[in-house]
């Protein structure tokens, strides 16, 4: 069955509870490769939960259902010169998956794009949710205004939780104005240490770059603003030339895919130590992406990297694991939702 409204999700979870049957929650289905192999007894298809619920450009607030496609959101916001600041990513070509990328999947997998270095990640933009927990109860958390500290910030918790806590049924985001113009600048022929230094320099200047990527010997900086602002910003960058787009050149093919977070000044050392066949650095080097064979799995896991496709060793020795287990149980005590996906 394809759930089309919250009541149907509640009913599906209630039945799963009764049968103690695990559920794989699927929206667009583009991100199913992540995590440990799952053996779910049923699929809860939420692709029917789609569409814009409310959009108030003057309030900078957008409420959507979780299976709304990234393309639809971009079009609706774009018509009013707005956007999601975290630039949610469609990973289907990177992961080699089929389906259409949805906002619920992007938020659940922390699929934040280059602009997150400037505007923050999905967790910084998700203001409120409605969801169904493992007790088969519909609940809401957060709010629908841009500034709110009422109660625990549960919306943060569902970001990057890979659908293991609850089934999202509605998401409210803050949105940002879209810049008048955007330009990508590139400086080619840089070693990793040179590229890292260039990006960190740009990051610490007041140009508010919305992209700071190093890939394959090139440092990319994306700038935004009107004509005079772009001219003033470009003056901070030496030796960069205009190009069409940020080219991360990341073609994992059959290799495993990993990402990790680190301090910008550590990026090159970590990339060297992993020595993966392919890698690139986003967010001024604070987010690294690797495509590597399974021989690198231990080294990547030891650095705290997350495996998005491939066979990750089970996470071990994380002192947070016990608290995470209790947090999971607070939402889904029977372990119905996406068991193993976060392991």
């Amino acid at each position: 069955m394809i759930a089309e409204n919250e009541a149907q999700v509640v009913e599906a979870v209630r039945q799963a509870r009764e049968r103690r049957s695990t559920l794989e929650i699927v929206g667009g289905g583009t991100r199913r490769s992540a995590g440990r192999p799952m053996h779910c007894e049923a699929v809860l298809d939420v692709s029917g939960l789609r569409g814009i619920v409310t959009y108030e450009p003057e309030e900078l607030v957008l409420t959507v259902k979780p299976a709304t496609t990234l393309a639809e959101i971009e079009a609706v916001l774009g018509a009013r010169n707005q956007r999601l600041g975290f630039e949610p990513q469609d990973w289907s070509s990177m992961l080699g998956s089929h389906g259409i990328s949805t906002i619920g999947g992007a938020v659940s997998s922390d699929a934040d794009g280059p602009a997150a270095i400037r505007f923050g990640r999905g967790r910084d933009h998700l203001l409120g949710i409605r969801a169904v927990n493992g007790f088969a109860e519909a609940f809401k958390a957060g709010g629908k205004v841009v500034k709110n500290v009422t109660g625990f910030d549960i919306p943060k918790l569902v970001c990057g939780a890979w659908g293991t806590l609850c089934v999202l049924t509605e998401l409210t985001f803050r949105v940002f104005p879209r810049a008048q113009r955007s330009v990508v600048l590139a400086r080619r022929g840089l070693t990793p240490p040179e590229g890292s230094a260039r990006l960190r320099q740009a990051w610490s200047s007041p140009i508010d770059a919305t992209g700071l990527v190093y890939a394959n010997g090139t440092a990319f900086v994306r700038l935004e603003g009107d004509g005079p602002a772009l001219a003033e910003k470009r003056a901070f960058l030496d030796g960069f030339e205009e190009t069409d787009a940020i080219e991360d050149g990341f073609a994992p093919g059959a290799l495993d895919i990993w990402r990790l977070s680190c301090r910008a000044t550590e990026a090159v050392r970590i990339a060297d130590s992993i020595a993966a066949p392919r890698w690139y650095g986003d967010w001024a080097g604070t987010r690294l992406w690797f495509a590597a064979g399974s021989d690198k799995a231990q080294a990547l896991a030891a650095q705290g990297a997350q495996c998005l496709r491939g066979n990750a060793p089970p996470r071990a020795g994380d002192p947070r694991a016990e608290l995470e287990r209790r947090v999971k149980a607070a939402f889904d005590p029977l372990g119905l939702f996406n068991p193993g996906r976060m392991a």
């Binding site: 625990f152 943060k156 990057g160 806590l165 705290g304 997350q306």
Partner: peptide
């Protein structure tokens, strides 16, 4: 009395839930 580093690496955003709690 257990000391935990939150906000680094992946896993649930426990820093996000602790902030404002």
């Amino acid at each position: 009395g257990e000391t935990l580093r939150l906000g680094e690496g992946f896993g649930y955003d426990l820093m996000g839930i602790v902030t404002g709690s």
